Amino acid sequence: MANIDGGPGTSDSLKTFGAVLKVFRERAALTREQLAEEVIYSPHTISSIEQGRRMPPEDFVERAEEVLDAFGVLRVAARNVARQPGLAAWFRLWAQLEKTAVTLCVYECRVVPGLLQTEAYARAVMLDVPPPPTEKELAERIAARLARKELLRREPPIALSFIIEEAVLLRRTGGDEVTREQLDHLIECARLWNVEIQIMPLRQPHHAGTDGPMQLMETREHRWLGYAEGQQTGQLVAGRKDVSLMQMRYARMRSQALSPADSVELLKRMRGEL
Rank of each mutant, 00 (worst) to 15 (best):
P156S: 01
P156K: 00
P156N: 01
P157A: 01
I158Y: 01
I158V: 09
A159Y: 02
L160E: 04
S161T: 04
S161P: 00
F162E: 04
I163T: 01
I163C: 03
I164V: 05
E165S: 08
E166N: 04
V168Y: 03
L169S: 02
L169Y: 05
R171F: 09
R171M: 03
R172C: 10
R172H: 11
G174Y: 11
G174F: 12
G174W: 12
G175H: 11
E177P: 05
T179Y: 14
R180A: 13
E181R: 11
E181V: 15
Q182I: 06
L183K: 08
L183P: 03
D184R: 14
H185N: 11
L186H: 05
I187S: 06
I187D: 13
E188K: 09
A190P: 03
A190L: 02
R191Y: 08
L192I: 15
N194A: 11
N194V: 00
N194T: 03
I197H: 06
I197V: 12
Q198M: 01
I199F: 08
I199T: 12
I199H: 05
M200F: 06
R203Y: 13
P205F: 14
H206G: 10
H207F: 15
H207Q: 11
A208Q: 12
A208F: 10
A208M: 09
D211T: 15
D211E: 15
G212A: 00
G212Y: 02
P213R: 01
P213Y: 02
M214L: 14
Q215H: 14
L216Y: 03
T219R: 03
R220Y: 07
R220W: 09
H222A: 07
H222V: 12
R223A: 14
R223P: 07
L225T: 05
G226E: 04
G226F: 14
Y227S: 10
Y227W: 06
A228F: 08
